[in-house]
């Protein structure tokens, strides 16, 4: 029964992924991405990673994909956004590389999965958000703080990138008024 759910949600995630690529319109691509996110989140739940699943929905589906959509709307591309499909050569090269890569990775996965035993005995402990927090704020406190600096840097970087000369957040605009 549970394996069936795994299969279904895995399939949904893959369909979503294919749709991201196949759709011409970026809006549809973004919506397909949301589908994949939800399916992956479901896979998390099936593996008892409830907190990660929740964060997955909140951050990815809720924030990141919305940011994508926001930018698509902001640029107001219209038909210009529906770019023609890639050339045959490029599609061929992409597909060839993709298939080769998938073949190799698949072989590795197959070999690993077939030799792996059942899930570890301690599995019962990992579903507690409390234990997750304990590890995060004890063992991984320094990386956690470093990530906050990375986010700050990203914030500053975005501001610097979006600013335009003479028409930015500085006082020059106010002077013109």
């Amino acid at each position: 029964m549970e394996t069936l759910l795994y299969l279904v949600f895995g399939l949904v995630a893959l369909v979503g992924g294919v749709l991201v690529i196949v759709n011409r319109n970026p809006v549809y691509s973004a919506l397909s991405l949301v589908l994949t996110m939800f399916a992956v989140s479901a896979l998390y739940i099936l593996q008892q990673a409830y907190f990660v699943a929740a964060v997955q929905i909140v951050v990815y589906a809720g924030a990141i994909v919305v940011l994508f959509l926001f930018v698509i709307m902001l640029l107001n591309l219209g038909d210009q956004g529906n770019l023609p499909a890639a050339s045959g050569t490029r599609r061929f090269v992409g597909a060839l590389l993709g298939v080769t890569f998938a073949g190799i990775v698949g072989a590795v996965v197959w070999e690993y999965a077939s030799t792996a035993g059942p899930a570890a005995a301690a599995a019962g402990d990992i579903d507690h958000t409390k234990s997750l927090a304990r590890v995060l704020f004890q063992n991984y406190l320094l990386p956690f703080e470093v990530v906050s600096i990375v986010l700050l840097a990203a914030l500053v970087g975005v501001l610097a990138l979006i600013r335009t000369h003479g028409r930015g957040l500085d006082s020059s605009e106010a002077d013109n008024v």
Binding site: R90, V93, G94, L97, T100, F101, I104, V105, A107, V108
Partner: peptide, 20 residues
């Protein structure tokens, strides 16, 4: 950019293949 990405992937594929 995608040419470069393709080359990176090709390199990764070759490395994985050789490793295998």
């Amino acid at each position: 950019v995608q040419t470069y990405a393709a080359l990176i992937l090709a390199g990764a594929v070759v490395l994985l293949f050789v490793k295998g």
